[in-house]
Design a protein around this nucleic acid. Structure first.
Lengths: 170, 170
DNA sequence: TTTTTATGTCAGTCATATTGACTTATATGC
DNA sequence: GCATATAAGTCAATATGACTGACATAAAAA
């Protein structure tokens, strides 16, 4: 034992603390995604569809490559999901004005409705957790979460309150 | 606008705050899993294998049904992954002493080694985020994350420091 | 004009997960 | 002791999410 007097090994404590962090992430993400996942089944969609709908809703006019950069999947993977959403009338594509190679993506009314429906439960879960934890804890949560995100994506999150609209990096 | 003087709509702020929470979870989880995922490829394993190895390592002697309860997948799904890990010598099964129907799972030396290798990067990521954010922020992070986890699983996380070992609920 | 970029597509493969049906062994309640 | 419930495992079929690799088209940029 490192610390004979207290019988507590600080290395063990640290290990335990970090493992707790790993598990908090696992359980929170598991529960965070379970409700939308269940709803998506009725549309014969999966979690990938939700992600596409979410980020297109969040960044109207987003291009395919920007979306690929956020999701970090291949265009072949995105293609099937996006194609379904376009064919079934949840997302529209329009040719870019400046760059006519681009397909600018937007939610249709139907897409907005589905996005709202899916994300509602997640917003409620977060709102409840924030409310129970208090403003100070939320600040800590933000700090830690941001620190776990790859540096290149941290500037998607505006520094402090007041909250600015999210940036869609170049 | 609700608040004419400041030009700030508190409902918008709240919406923005919650969406930021959604995105923090998405990006953090995406990056949190990417390193182990890349390593697992060399073993022709996937994320599911990591989860099994992790929780068996965390709870030596865990039963199949307890593991199913944590992962929230079907036994058919677990079966393939667990079977591979047993066949390839990462996990051992032994018959329960009290209840001989149970298969108690444990990591082999090889399994412990792989677990360490995979989880190392995740621990490092969390350690760095904790260090940068500070102890107070970590407390807030814990509070918020715990609030997002389904109530039935919250007691896996001991209340305050000092940290007690995790409980494998009955 | 050549090259690069943005997007899309075809084909094949693998991993994760599901539902449903069924089996075996063992524990437990009456 | 017998009926029932539980723990675990298996077979089969299917959906979803992801990948690599190769190739095509259109448009921008050098």
């Amino acid at each position: 034992m490192t610390d004979i007097k207290t019988g507590v090994n600080p290395l063990f404590l640290r290990e335990e603390e970090l493992r707790q962090g790993i598990e908090l992430l696992f359980f929170a993400y598991r529960d965070f995604t379970s409700e939308p996942d269940a709803m998506l089944e009725q549309y014969r969609f999966g979690r990938a569809h939700h992600r596409v709908i979410y980020f297109v809703g969040r960044h109207p006019g987003i291009t395919v490559s920007e979306l690929l950069g956020i999701l970090r999947i291949t265009k072949q993977s995105l293609s099937r999901v996006l194609g379904q959403l376009v064919r079934e009338g949840f997302i529209t594509q329009r040719t870019g004005a400046r760059d006519r190679r681009q397909r600018l993506l937007e939610l249709t009314e139907k897409g907005i409705e589905l996005e709202r429906l899916l994300t509602e439960k997640q917003r409620a879960r977060i709102a409840q957790a924030y409310r129970e934890a208090g403003a100070e804890a939320v600040e800590g949560f933000r700090k830690v979460m941001l620190g776990m995100i790859d540096e290149q994506d941290r500037d998607r999150f505006p520094a402090g309150s007041p909250l600015a609209p999210p940036r869609r990096r170049p």
